[in-house]
């Protein structure tokens, strides 16, 4: 098991460079599990200390983030602006706590700084901010912005002949926004096969289940009809997620969407599949129980 943050970063870098024996694969999977757990623990503490909402939204995507930052993304904490880095945009900005946690855990800034989340005078706002935070490409918070910007970055990369990828993580409720579908149409038309949309498909939005608000199904067919390659997976299964990201683009000349089926609040029993833990803050007994469950899972 890895213990320290630098240890963690080094290990991922090493694993990426060397050929993968079964043993190394085992190490990687253990590390991803550990990273996901660290992200969840941070997100729980950060939202609890600051009294902020959106803990369920952070838990939902912790495994996706762990897989991305644990070896998928070509990013370097020592050179966060290197031109050939993969770009990652969190479009569901309300779950910013999880991205801050992933960045801190992989060495972009000190883990200590996470304690300032939501506090007076801090830079770590409730919705993800790029100002003074290494590793964040785009400030978001108003849903329906990320994918369009990611599409612009992917188009620019094509113009330059650059080979990096642009990843954008969206929520399912967010797909209500028409702006996304404009970007989806554009990316399909321009065959931006360097663009990867990931949907945190937890089936819950602000007031009710997605199916009772604006149903998205048949969801995969919608993307296909717009000219995208579609892969679906269990968004909490690191092996499946890794596989999805290992074979990009899913369809030769097309942008890819990874529809990751997730559970909102994943990892804390009383938060799972609830609308209210989009809003509530875990304190007192609830906090202790959540902490126990997350620690036990490690």
């Amino acid at each position: 098991m890895i213990r320290s943050q630098s240890d963690c970063t080094r290990r991922f870098a090493l694993a990426k460079r060397t050929s993968r024996t079964a043993f190394q694969l085992f190490i990687i999977m253990t590390d991803l599990k550990h990273l996901a757990q660290r992200i969840r623990l941070h997100a729980l503490r950060m939202t609890s200390v600051g009294g902020s909402a959106h803990v369920g939204a952070a838990m939902s995507m912790a495994d996706i983030l762990a897989t991305l930052y644990g070896g998928t993304l070509n990013v370097d904490p020592n050179d966060p602006q290197k031109p050939d880095r993969d770009r990652f945009i969190l479009s569901k900005g309300h779950a910013g706590a999880a991205v801050y946690a992933a960045l801190a855990e992989t060495g972009f800034f000190p883990v200590e700084q996470l304690k300032t989340h939501f506090q007076n005078g801090s830079k770590l706002s409730g919705h993800v901010s790029h100002k003074g935070i290494p590793g964040v490409e785009l400030s978001t918070g108003s849903l329906g912005h990320g994918l369009g910007v990611a599409t612009g970055m992917a188009y620019a990369a094509k113009l330059k002949g650059a080979t990096h990828r642009v990843y954008c993580l969206l929520s399912d409720g967010e797909c209500d926004e028409g702006s996304n579908w404009e970007a989806i149409l554009f990316a399909g038309h321009h065959q931006l096969n360097n663009l990867v949309a990931i949907i945190d498909y937890n089936k819950i939005q602000s007031l009710a289940p997605v199916s009772e608000t604006l149903a998205l199904e048949p969801f995969a067919d919608k993307w296909r009809a717009f000219g995208w390659g579609v892969v679906e997976c269990d968004g909490h299964d690191h092996a499946q997620l890794r596989e999805c990201f290992a074979e990009l683009p899913a369809q030769g000349g097309q942008p890819t969407v990874v529809i990751a089926h997730t559970i909102k609040g994943k990892g804390v029993s009383f938060m799972e599949n609830t609308v209210e833990w989009h809003y509530f803050t875990a304190r007192g007994e609830k906090f202790d129980q959540a902490l126990r469950e997350l620690q036990a899972a490690g």
Partner: peptide, 9 residues
């Protein structure tokens, strides 16, 4: 009113 949430808010 939503000071801590960031400029989007």
């Amino acid at each position: 009113s939503y000071g801590q949430l960031g400029i989007s808010h």
